[in-house]
Every structure is written in C-alpha cells, then in structure tokens.
Design a protein around this nucleic acid. Structure first.
Lengths: 214, 214
DNA sequence: TACTATCCGATAGCTATACTCTCCATTGTG
DNA sequence: CACAATGGAGAGTATAGCTATCGGATAGTA
C-alpha cells in the first residue's frame, strides 16, 4: 500500500479513506494482511485525484462516475451518468417555464430530452440572470449555445478517436469533468484578449504580450 | 430587517451572518436598534444568493467580487478581480512548461498576460489530462479555445451594452460567474444532441424530441 | 521461538465552511 | 409602563474531506 502512496504522493490514510468510500477498488489481497497494487490502481488513484482536485467533484459524485466507467454499460450510459453526477438534481419545477422557453429557443434544432440536466441547469441560470435584473441585450444566450455546440462536437470527436469501450468511457468522464475547467480557464484568457483589443489601456497586471506559438 | 428576510426568503440569521462577513453593506440605521433597508439591499442580497448558489462561490470569494463592484475602479479592474476571485491562485510553478506551451499554441494570436489566471488554470487542466494518459487526438484544446473566444466576445458585447460603470461592473461579475454555469449546462445539452445525431440508439432517458422554438 | 517491522481495517478526531441559535440590552408601540 | 420585536455579538451545529491512532495479524530475520 505505501508503494501506492509513494508513487502517487497521496498519504496512506487518504488512500484507505478512498477505499472505504468505494472510490478505489479493494486491493487484490494475497494474504489477510498483505495486498498487491498494480498499475491499474495507480491510474485509478490519479483519476480520483483529478476528479476531486481539478474537477472539484464531491466524493459521492466521483464514486458515481467511477462506477459508471467500471460498469459494462455502453458508453452512452456513461455519458448520462457523468452528466447526472456533475449536475445537482433539478427538475422542471425548479425553473420557470419562461426560462425553459428561452433555453429551448437558444438550442433550436437540437435533439435534447426534456429532462437533460444541462437543459435544466441552463434554465436556472437564465432565471437567475433575470432575477438579478440583467437582460440579454446582445444575444448572450444564443452565442453561448453556439459555443457549447462547438465544444460538444469536439468532445464527441475526441471520444470517437478512442478505441474500446473502456478507453471511451474514461474519456467521456475525463472530458466531461475537465472540459468545464478547461473552458472556464480559456474563457478567462479570451476575455482578457478581447477586452485588451477593444480598450486602449490594459489592466494593471504587468506586461501583456501578443502570443506567438511557442 | 425581517422585511428583508420576508422579501428575499432568507432567514434573518443568515442575513446577519452576511453582514458580519462583509457581503452585505451595513444597514442605514435610524436608531441604535432600528435599521432601514431599501431596494438596493434587496438587490444586493439577491446577487449574493446567486453568487453563492448558482455560482458556487465561497463566502470569501463573493466578498471579494462584491467589493470590486463597489469600488470606484474602472470596469477593467473589476474584470480582473472577478477572475482572481473565481480561480484558485496558481502560479507558473504549478504547471509544466509543456502545458503552458500547449495552451499558448491553442491561443495563438491572443493578447494575454502571462499571469492570467485562466491561462494557468487551462495549463493545469492540460497537465492533468496528460497525466491521465489522455492524448489530444482530435484538436480538443484548439476547438475549446475557439469556443471560449466566442463566449468571451459575447461577454464583452453584453457588458458593452450596459451604460454606466456600476451597471457594467455588475454585468462583469454576473456574466463571469454565471457564464461558467450557463456554458456547462448548454454543453451537456449539446452533448446529448450531438451524440444522438451520431448514434442510432439514444440513451434510455425517455423521449428525445427534436426541439422547435417554443 | 522471539523480535521487529509492516500491513490492514475500523474508529475516532480534526479542520474548514456555511450557516443557525441564544442571549441581552434597547426600543418602538399600545 | 408593559412587552414583543430588533439588532448585534458570540457560541453552537452540520457536513465534507481528510488524518491520526489502535488492535490484531503476519512476514522477515536470526
């Protein structure tokens, strides 16, 4: 076990905790008190740390998505499981019909089930936006929908490039979880870029420099 | 005070807590034990609930962004403040140069300061992605960067449509915080759409229906 | 066989966050 | 003037995510 701890940099106490919570599969034990860990365990632990750390999942949510990787279900179900684990559970009564209509209008032509967690989450954002007295003057929702479509196509292409159910299922989870974080980072960078292109004086954060490929 | 509580549906104990934490400005008191709250207080409280609830900010982060709305700084600084409050504080030593190079390549031509929190956050995602044994086969990073640019342009247009520093500053904060949640919801919806367009059998979540504008 | 070191597993404890409750002097109101 | 309500301050609570300790068992060594 402390082999695992040493390799991963995770304290043994934490590893034991993850095992208890069902995040990490039980060790293949060779004796009542002796266990063996292989590269699969190391990889799994790394996945856990990524989901909890960068992805900010809760222990329970991480356990759910990991379970859906391990189940033999087709990849499409893993997708659903990942989405459910990542979103808090809303139903239609948590959002106004108006907000749903706005979301549906922004996603016209999309084939999305009414209970899709993303649809409901987006509607709640629309509600919140309205409650704060903000209005969508410049087609913000529509343009976000276009951006989201771009990202989703990239996601699906990335998944399709993997071969084998297990590799695909893992990419589904990793892509879904890390995708949020990646986009959020890139959007902030893009905000600075767009903003500096429109306003003469850049924010005080030191030197801004045009970015050539390294 | 319980006027405020009634209107907002927030318990008075919680309101008092927010005041203590500096989220809510002190009441304009008319007597040592009697205070008056106006519509500004109601609006502020709603903003707080939105930041904490939908935006999932911590109390401390919310206090920071709210402070930057109230300061008289130009809107560009509010942008920076919002970004800093939303990102955990990374510096270049937290990510590999390789990951930074990949991020910079995906954002070629963008004018972004090296310390931009988004740039570093994106690099950390790239690192994590690699550590999990995933490779960017289908131009995932580049395509996310394109999507992020779209979103950032929408953000800036939306902000530009507001008049007055205070309205703009509030839209900066609201847009930056809610934008992450909105995109994440729309991306999940788009994933289902794209996925159902590519695979014959949809996931079991009941009826999927093509979506006509309401 | 004795000794030591390690390991597993279970339990209890710790820390941070986001509230929530209790107390109490003050005070508007009838 | 009685009296419920108010504002402010500090302590208390619930949950999440670890972390530390203890007890029993076993492998390695001599």
């Amino acid at each position: 076990m402390s082999e695992l701890s040493a390799v991963s940099g995770t304290p043994t106490a934490t590893i034991k905790f993850y095992q208890r919570e069902g995040l990490l599969p039980p060790s293949d034990k060779t004796a009542p008190n002796q266990a063996d860990y292989g590269p699969a365990h190391v990889a799994r632990l790394q996945l856990i740390r990524a989901l909890l750390g960068v992805g900010k999942l809760s222990i329970a949510a991480a356990a759910e998505v990991i379970g859906s990787i391990d189940s033999a279900e087709p990849v499409l179900y893993t997708f659903e499981a990942a989405q459910n684990a990542l979103s808090e559970h809303l139903d239609e009564s948590d959002v106004t019909p108006d907000a749903l209509a706005i979301v549906d209008a922004a996603t016209t032509g999309w084939r999305v089930s009414p209970g899709n967690p993303g649809r409901l989450a987006a509607a709640r954002v629309v509600d919140t936006f309205g409650a704060l007295g903000q209005a969508d003057e410049a087609g913000w929702f529509d343009r976000y929908a276009a951006a989201a479509l771009l990202a989703a196509e990239a996601d699906l292409d990335e998944i399709a490039s993997r071969s084998g159910r297990d590799a695909q299922a893992e990419t589904v989870v990793v892509g879904t979880v890390l995708g949020d974080a990646l986009f959020s980072g890139l959007r902030r960078a893009a905000q600075e870029h767009v903003s500096s292109g429109r306003h003469p004086a850049p924010p005080h954060a030191a030197s801004t420099r045009p970015n050539g490929a390294s």
